[in-house]
């Protein structure tokens, strides 16, 4: 059992926690928390492979940095949408927002 496997197990653990939050929560902010946790789990995986696989240090780190950038954009947009939804109907529960249901 090498150290790479340990890190893969850790990132699986964080992924499981994130998926659990995504499934069980209704509050939009909590769901955003869960999404951030999942993205971080993926990033940890990329970082571990960057360290322990030969010839991948530069490109794997580049990908991880791009992931962090995309996550920042996602969080900004998500939080703006949450604030807007709160302004319109003063609650942020996702299962009560069904005006746009087809």
């Amino acid at each position: 059992m090498n150290e790479l496997a340990i890190f893969i197990i850790f990132s699986t653990l964080f992924l499981a926690i994130g998926v659990y939050g995504l499934l069980s929560k209704r509050n939009a902010i909590r769901i955003l928390f869960a999404i951030e946790i999942i993205i971080n789990a993926a990033n940890l995986n990329i970082g571990a492979f960057a360290r322990y696989m030969p010839y991948s240090l530069g490109s794997a780190q580049a990908i991880a940095i791009f992931v962090i950038g995309v996550a920042a954009a996602e969080a900004a947009i998500g939080l703006a949408i949450i604030i807007e939804a709160f302004r319109l109907r003063s609650k942020v529960e996702l299962d009560e927002m069904k005006e746009m249901k087809g």
Partner: peptide, 26 residues
């Protein structure tokens, strides 16, 4: 459900560790 899912995923990974151990780790 989350705990069970975690156990399943980790279990599959523990079986897959054979594979990971044979990877050319630096």
């Amino acid at each position: 459900l989350g705990v069970l899912g975690f156990i399943t995923i980790v279990g599959s990974f523990v079986f897959a560790i054979e594979y990971f151990s044979s990877l050319p780790v630096a």
